[in-house]
């Protein structure tokens, strides 16, 4: 059980860091809140969704998914930072479970996601987001989001440990994550995209996640899903498969990378 104990200590360290530098939390939430306001009031007025409650009902799941997708960058840059300071060497020289540091890091980043999602939810509510599904399904939706963030966090571990320079990590993760969240159904229907992009967007895990959340939050129209493709017909199943696949691939890869990272 000492591994569990080690992981708990590392996770707590992460939370302690968070309370000592509240800026991290503030900036993690400011950006998505800004997106909510921009899309809601700048674009929202001119997009006719045919949806009761308007654009904001479709927008919020998109913003939620985009927010948790950035966990990848958060985990990666956090680990790269630890590495730069030599902290990873210290942890690896301690008689603790060798995976505790990375597992604790991914859990800590997920706990941060809980806080950020709560703030986002409140912000959404303020600007008119009202999920029509029951409490159970809404909660399930948020659980889905956390799980997605957790899976991506493991990709972040590999990115962070592979990076040669901590400063590069944040930029690289951003360059990858940003287009992925936009080449999706998160903010606009995919039906307006060129054929190739549309195809890409439909299979994009961000799209399936957004569609899955919309479904769980009680929206019928999934906004841009072209009937026929498997992911758009079964967003929940596809998202789940994606998450499992990501974790099955990246958890062992990341742990191996961590164990051998000095060799």
């Amino acid at each position: 059980m000492s591994a569990v104990n080690d992981i708990a200590i590392i996770t707590r360290r992460q939370l302690l860091l968070l309370t000592r530098v509240p800026e991290v939390l503030i900036f993690s939430t400011i950006q998505p809140v800004m997106f909510v306001l921009l899309f809601r009031y700048v674009f929202g007025g001119s997009i006719n969704t045919g949806q009761p409650g308007g654009y904001v009902q479709l927008l919020m799941p998109g913003i939620f998914v985009q927010t948790v997708a950035f966990t990848l960058a958060g985990t990666a840059s956090g680990l790269a930072e630890d590495m730069k300071k030599g902290l990873i060497d210290r942890f690896r020289s301690l008689p603790i479970s060798q995976s505790a540091l990375v597992i604790g890091r991914t859990l800590g980043d997920s706990l941060l996601n809980i806080v950020v999602l709560a703030v986002m939810g409140i912000a959404g509510y303020v600007v008119g987001w009202r999920p029509s599904a029951g409490l159970g399904n809404v909660a399930l939706g948020f659980l889905f989001l956390l799980l997605f963030g957790y899976a991506l966090s493991w990709v972040g571990v590999l990115v962070g440990l592979s990076a040669s320079d901590a400063r590069v990590v944040q930029n690289v993760s951003f360059i990858v994550t940003f287009p992925l969240t936009f080449l999706s159904n998160a903010f606009a229907p995919t039906t307006g995209m060129p054929r190739a992009l549309q195809y890409f967007a439909e299979w994009n895990p961000v799209s399936t996640m957004v569609a899955a959340c919309r479904e769980l939050f009680g929206l019928e129209n999934q906004f841009g899903a072209t009937a026929g493709s498997f992911p758009s017909e079964h967003p929940l199943t596809t998202s789940l498969i994606y998450m499992v696949v990501i974790m099955v691939i990246f958890i062992p890869l990341s742990l191996r990378k961590y164990r051998n990272y000095a060799d």
């Binding site: 200590i9 360290r13 302690l16 860091l17 000592r20 300071k85 030599g86 060497d89 210290r90 008689p95």
Partner: peptide, 28 residues
């Protein structure tokens, strides 16, 4: 063993006390 590397490997944001207590707990 104890190891102290070329760079002070401690959490800058945490206090000296926090750091040592955390490492103590990691040593069980």
């Amino acid at each position: 063993i104890g190891l102290s590397g070329q760079y002070a490997a401690v959490d800058e944001i945490l206090t000296g006390y926090d750091n040592l207590v955390m490492f103590g707990e990691l040593y069980h």
